[in-house]
């Protein structure tokens, strides 16, 4: 019986990956998470140039989850490629943000020769203008970006979220353009206001909600996608224990990503692995994909 699985041509040591933007700037931290059972790790979304992000407060607790608007702070794709070059033996799924096909392709080229099993396109960041959801809301642009990257010969995972257009249109565009998998979902655009000062709790005003409150929404999206599309889906949103991971698999996901719940608990990947492993044993399954087919 094995926890190892293969999604979109990417070999995963286990079904639970680290989600983008979580603990995502140190190669040493990535190595530690892979050593502690993460099936794969995804980098912070990288832009062509470094970004400082928004000033604090960038994160606040809300409704049992977290609200964030870090503003895509990241060292930039060229710096990150150098970091990877300096730390061989740590494979990283590289997440990219950008606004046009050429920008994505030139960023992807920086990683030639490095251990990047796939690129995840952040088409769904809810709190930065001109990239993220604004791209994801434009299926025609998504299609051109995915086609260009596939033309460059790399594996592509399209990460979708709930924007102002039907996200299923983004999924269709990505699938038709040849994407290898879809990650669903990103944080959900949200806001909290402090009643004493009357001010939004985040410096940016709007942010994205993550953690347990969005899990039922994410499970719904995974089921909607897998019931209409062939493309493999990586479920993301509120996974906090092995039961949550199993729920996503039953909804049709091929693997899951863990974000907020990895906060302060790098042991969560091992917990999920052992929980899923016993679950499979009890049911007599020998592969992760059998959990999915059981639904």
């Amino acid at each position: 019986m094995g926890l190892a699985t293969r999604v979109a041509g990417i070999d995963l040591a286990g079904p639970a990956m680290l989600a983008s933007g979580i603990l995502g700037i140190s190669m040493d931290v990535f190595r530690r998470l892979l050593d502690s059972g993460a099936g794969a790790v995804v980098s912070k979304s990288l832009s062509a140039e470094p970004r400082e992000g928004y000033p604090n407060p960038t994160m606040a607790e809300a409704a049992g989850g977290w609200l964030n608007a870090v503003g895509l702070s990241n060292p930039g794709a060229p710096n990150f490629a150098n970091m990877m070059r300096g730390a061989p033996g740590v494979p990283v799924v590289v997440s990219l943000v950008g606004s046009d096909p050429d920008e994505f392709v030139s960023m992807a080229r920086l990683f030639e020769g490095l251990e990047v099993p796939a690129f995840e396109l952040n088409l769904s960041c809810p709190h930065v203008e001109k990239v993220g959801l604004e791209v994801g809301d434009d299926p025609e642009l998504v299609s051109r970006i995915v086609r260009s990257l596939k033309g460059a010969g790399v594996r592509v995972i399209a990460k979708v979220g709930l924007g102002s257009s039907d996200y299923l249109g983004t999924v269709r565009a990505a699938e038709d353009a040849g994407a290898d998998a879809v990650t669903a979902i990103n944080t959900v655009r949200a806001m909290s206001i402090d009643v004493h000062s009357g001010r939004p709790v985040l410096s940016n005003g709007f942010g994205g909600l993550s953690g347990p409150p969005i899990r039922p929404i994410a499970v719904r999206c995974v089921r909607e996608i897998t019931s209409r599309h062939e493309i493999p889906v990586i479920g993301c949103g509120g996974v906090s224990c092995w039961e949550d991971a199993a729920e996503f698999l039953l909804a049709g996901a091929s693997a899951v990503q863990v974000g907020t719940a990895a906060g302060g608990n790098p042991g969560i990947f091992a917990e999920i692995n052992s929980g899923i492993s016993s679950y499979m044993e009890r049911r007599g399954y020998s592969e992760i994909s059998e959990v999915r087919r059981a639904a």
């Binding site: 933007g21 979580i22 603990l23 995502g24 700037i25 140190s26 040493d28 931290v29 912070k44 604090n56 960038t58 994160m59 977290w66 964030n68 870090v70 702070s73 974000g259 907020t260 990895a262 906060g263 302060g264 608990n265 790098p266």
Partner: peptide, 12 residues
């Protein structure tokens, strides 16, 4: 620091 609780990675 941004989150203070091990989510964002800025303090690594």
């Amino acid at each position: 620091m941004k989150c203070g609780v091990g989510i964002c990675g800025s303090c690594c």
